[in-house]
Design a protein around this nucleic acid. Sequence first.
DNA 1: TTATTAAAGGATAATAATTATCCTTTAAGC
DNA 2: GCTTAAAGGATAATTATTATCCTTTAATAA
Lengths: 134, 134
Amino acid sequence: MNSELLLREHDLKVTPQRLGILSLMKIRGHVDVEELFSEMKKQFSSISLATLYKNVNAMLEKHLITEIKAPNFKAKYEIVKEPHIHLLCKECDEFVDLDLDLESLISDASKKSNYQLKESCVVLSGLCKKCQTK
Amino acid sequence: MNSELLLREHDLKVTPQRLGILSLMKIRGHVDVEELFSEMKKQFSSISLATLYKNVNAMLEKHLITEIKAPNFKAKYEIVKEPHIHLLCKECDEFVDLDLDLESLISDASKKSNYQLKESCVVLSGLCKKCQTK
DNA sequence: TTATTAAAGGATAATAATTATCCTTTAAGC
DNA sequence: GCTTAAAGGATAATTATTATCCTTTAATAA
């Protein structure tokens, strides 16, 4: 979906800065605040860090993006999509999405715990293919 | 295992403060830095926050404890145990462990990605039993 | 279009969280 | 009991995040 519509559907005003943020997330998949800042400065030389924090928080509140956190890892942000998991390489810091069915995990967890589960944050870490042979 | 041995086996000196930290983790299951500080002050009235950070970091490095992170959640620490997942209630903030077999998830992820996976950080969130009926 | 207005942006101050420093105290091994 | 390297405590420094305040701009309706 185009970013303008994405913003409108989440009750967020369309601004060039916000379009830039979303565009970057689409290209990169996930970004952290630091990356966001250094990349955005290329397009918006006078952008303020505060603007980024404010926008990231606004987008989180409206559920347009989600936050991914894990040990030894700077929080990253991505546009909301189907439930999936994340893989982190401890050697080269590669970080990728993996579309994997979480249904059985979630239903098992629900049965065992009686929790009604809505969201998941799954990060598995180890070595990517390249780093295994080094 | 008793805490003294646990420390020794991880090449950490045994100190009263460290024993206190581990004892608290055993009782509570997981603690965040703030809880740790307020509870520890009951036993060690002059303990410094720096001591807690230093010890938490030392224990993390030696893999005696692990860190759990998730969105809208203050990082918590727990003594290393068998792989398991965590459930978070968004209503009352209850946070619990759940022993669930992660083997199939991890092997599926490995196959699909060619990653060699070692660690997992899984937090599922929703409503605990009590909060579902409120 | 243009005028109006609430919200967004930018600069920067304030706050919170974490780490570093420095000196004192203590655990571990002889 | 000594010795010594490491740990603890106090606090300064750093980093990350949020708040504030004023200026600018996107959205809307005349």
